[in-house]
Simulated assay, not measured.
Amino acid sequence: MAHVITSDTEAIETATKLAASFARASALRDAERVLPRAELDELSQSGLLGITVPRGHGGAEVGAGTLGEVVRLLSAADSSIGQIPQNHFFFVEVLKENGTPRQHDFFYAELLAGRRFGNALAEKGTKHALEFATRLVPDPSGGYRLTGVKNYATGALFAHWVPVFALGPDDRLTAAFLPSDAPGVTVVDDWDGIGQRTTASGTVRLEDVHVPEDRVVPHHLTFERPEVFGAFGQFIHAAVDAGIARAALEEGGELIRTVARPWGESGVDRASEEPLVIQKFGELTLLVRSAEALLERAGAALDAARRAPADEHLATEASLAVTAARAQADTAAVTVSSEVFALIGTRSALRGGNLDRHWRNARTHTLHDPRRWKIQHLGNHALNGVTPPANGII
């Protein structure tokens, strides 16, 4: 059985300790694509995967701000390990929103025992990311049958449960929770991205899988009322990017202090004393600190909206706060992980150091959904008072 964390403070303390451990071999795991199975087992046993379980079911029910800090800390240590639980926490929220009391009792116990959720959401070949072709078909013997192919299934390879987005018989979006070893479920490790190399964000094949009725959640109901569900999912993504940005800044700073040489015209003995290096590093630090500050503010806005779930104004403010955090974390991660190379010099490009993993991770993870639409929604609200759409990705 996993340890059960009981407070926000304990959650952050636990994440801090695990992050220090996970960071030690992070560069090696990326370079050799060593999947973090042992590390994820350790994460499960630590109790961190159960920290959003409601108090009434034995969990800590930590605030969004705490969860964001936990994910940021893990991502700064190893951004693949930080991203893998994103969909885990996402589907805990799916259950919270529309699960039945019986489903809550069963799955919350699973979570507190250290069980992991993966995901089977995205599909290639549909018109856009919010369109799904996979369907639940009624089974004459009871329940449903499910056939389809899902892609970019981060965490599914390591999961005990694989939640699947599918259209129900009424064409409305549902979530079906499948055991990863259910007959007809195959998880293929075919992820070959340039970054986030050990997330195993591969393919899930579903071949005539039987789905009991009590494993289906009517997810479409979430968007028929004021909600911050979409903002919550984006918030965790922002925490991953903020973690990558911090990791690139800190590793880059260490290399500037220890191996970089000053430019000959500078008149100083160390690169870390060169005024132009200090100035540029200050600008990069500002990007990271602003991303972290916006992440903290977004967490507070989410918590405020959750305390008053019928308040549309608070829901809008939470969505906007998360949108800003996500956009800024995107910029910070991609910019810092690129610009530190110029401050260190040629040595930073050697493969042995694997400094480029931060840029590859940032560039890959920030492709999840476009920054340009974050800016669009921020501008349209500020200029025209248009509320961001309730579509699950803002």
Rank of each mutant, 00 (worst) to 15 (best):
L286Q: 10
V268K: 12
A248C: 04
W263K: 13
E273D: 14
F235C: 02
I244Y: 01
P275G: 11
D241I: 00
E213C: 01
P262N: 12
V259Q: 07
V228N: 04
T199M: 05
G282F: 05
G193P: 00
L221E: 10
A242M: 03
T258A: 09
L276M: 09
R246A: 15
F281C: 07
E254V: 10
D192W: 00
R257C: 07
A260R: 08
H220T: 02
V277D: 00
K280Y: 12
G195V: 07
V228A: 03
V209Y: 08
G282S: 13
G233W: 03
E273P: 00
A247W: 02
T198F: 04
F232D: 06
V217F: 04
L178Y: 10
R289N: 15
A248P: 03
G193Q: 00
A239H: 11
F229V: 08
Q234K: 15
I194P: 12
A200G: 13
G230E: 10
A238M: 08
D241C: 06
E250C: 10
R257I: 02
L286I: 03
T203N: 04
D241V: 01
P179L: 09
G193N: 03
G282N: 11
P212D: 12
H219R: 13
G195F: 11
A242H: 03
E207C: 04
I256W: 01
L249G: 03
E213A: 14
R215E: 07
A248G: 09
W191G: 01
R261F: 05
S180R: 13
P262A: 15
P226F: 06
H210T: 15
V217E: 02
V185F: 14
Q279L: 15
E251D: 13
R205Q: 13
E254L: 14
H237V: 13
G193H: 01
W263R: 15
L287P: 09
G282E: 07
V228C: 03
P218K: 08
G243W: 05
F223S: 10
V188P: 03
A247Y: 04
V268E: 11
A176G: 10
E224K: 14
A176R: 07
P212E: 12
V187L: 08
I236H: 08
T198M: 12
D208N: 10
G195W: 10
V259L: 14
E213Y: 01
D192M: 02
P179N: 08
G195P: 09
A245Y: 05
D181Q: 11
H219V: 11
E283P: 02
A200P: 09
A200I: 06
G282I: 11
A176T: 06
H210N: 14
G202P: 05
E250W: 07
D189G: 04
S180W: 00
V216Y: 15
F281H: 15
L255C: 05
G243T: 06
V217H: 01
S180G: 05
D241W: 03
E250K: 10
L221I: 01
R225N: 06
E273T: 01
A176M: 08
K280P: 01
V228M: 01
L286R: 12
D189V: 04
